[in-house]
């Protein structure tokens, strides 16, 4: 059996640079960076729900998001904010997770409409993911069915304040607590669930590897990877066997 990723259950390693160890220049740079981050937000809309209809007025002449420095973007690579408008079916959730993992940090998730908070009117649906924050770290919920553009903009402004203060760091949790999120994802999609993005490797690369990054659930993922000779985490070209299995569930 190939040892692809060493499984460390009780890893106490934390982020390389903790806040206290920063000197004054680094703090100044951080403050300035957060200042800029708060003033320039690129939004990726994942608009499969009904809340999408509230975004055009928020963008166009009535409310004009651009005066706050918020612009729509097209691909996850370019975007800072993943805007999920409304209910997320299980099939959609796979794509949402793929998209989220392809976004580059700092990245923020905003759940618009009640459905993202607790499933809303789809509470009894077998095919809807109820609580979005179980699968992704959500920075902000904007409740309502549906929230008006004013509410959306207020939510965005609150997020901007959080970013400027340097408090909007929940995206790091996805790396630090990957085991938890992966477990919830596996609960819905089954044990064969995997995405092209190698979160653990990224966590190591960006020094975001924490004690809860790995656990039973990531062990399951790695086991699956090794069993199917996937080794997708370092050389996806050998994914011959898995190619038909992916995304079937």
């Amino acid at each position: 059996m190939k040892d692809v990723i060493p499984i460390q259950t009780n890893n106490t390693e934390t982020i390389a640079v903790s806040k206290n160890s920063k000197n004054i220049y680094q703090q100044a740079i951080d403050t300035f960076s957060n200042f800029c981050r708060a003033r320039s937000l690129f939004v990726l809309h994942y608009c499969t729900g009904c809340g999408a209809i509230e975004l055009p007025p928020a963008m166009t002449s009535r409310f004009d998001m651009e005066r706050l420095g918020i612009q729509p973007m097209v691909t996850p690579r370019q975007a800072d904010i993943l805007l999920i408008t409304g209910y997320v079916s299980i099939k959609t959730l796979k794509r949402v997770i793929l998209t989220y993992e392809q976004m580059q940090g700092p990245k923020y998730v905003i759940g618009i409409c009640s459905c993202t908070v607790n499933g809303g009117m789809y509470w009894q649906s077998y095919a809807t993911a109820k609580v979005l924050s179980e699968y992704l770290p959500v920075d902000m919920y904007i409740a309502g069915c549906m929230p008006r553009p004013e509410a959306v903009l207020t939510g965005l402004q609150q997020l901007m304040k959080k970013i400027e203060k340097g408090e909007a760091n929940s995206w790091e949790n996805y790396f630090k607590r990957y085991d938890y999120y992966l477990g919830n994802q596996q609960h819905l999609f089954g044990d064969t669930w995997h995405t092209p993005t190698d979160i653990l490797e990224e966590a190591r690369h960006y020094h975001l590897y924490g004690a809860e990054s790995t656990g039973n659930n990531t062990a399951r993922l790695i086991k699956y990877t090794v069993e199917h000779d996937l080794t997708k985490l370092d050389a996806p070209l050998r994914e011959k066997d898995s190619m038909t299995k992916r995304g079937k569930k």
């Binding site: 166009t60 002449s61 420095g69 580059q104």
Partner: peptide
């Protein structure tokens, strides 16, 4: 388009923000 448009230094903020992305 009858909008207000971006703030004065918006292009600069965009570029700096992109350069300070952590990933």
């Amino acid at each position: 388009e009858r909008r207000v448009g971006p703030p004065f230094l918006q292009p600069l903020w965009d570029i700096i923000k992109l350069y300070v992305k952590k990933m």
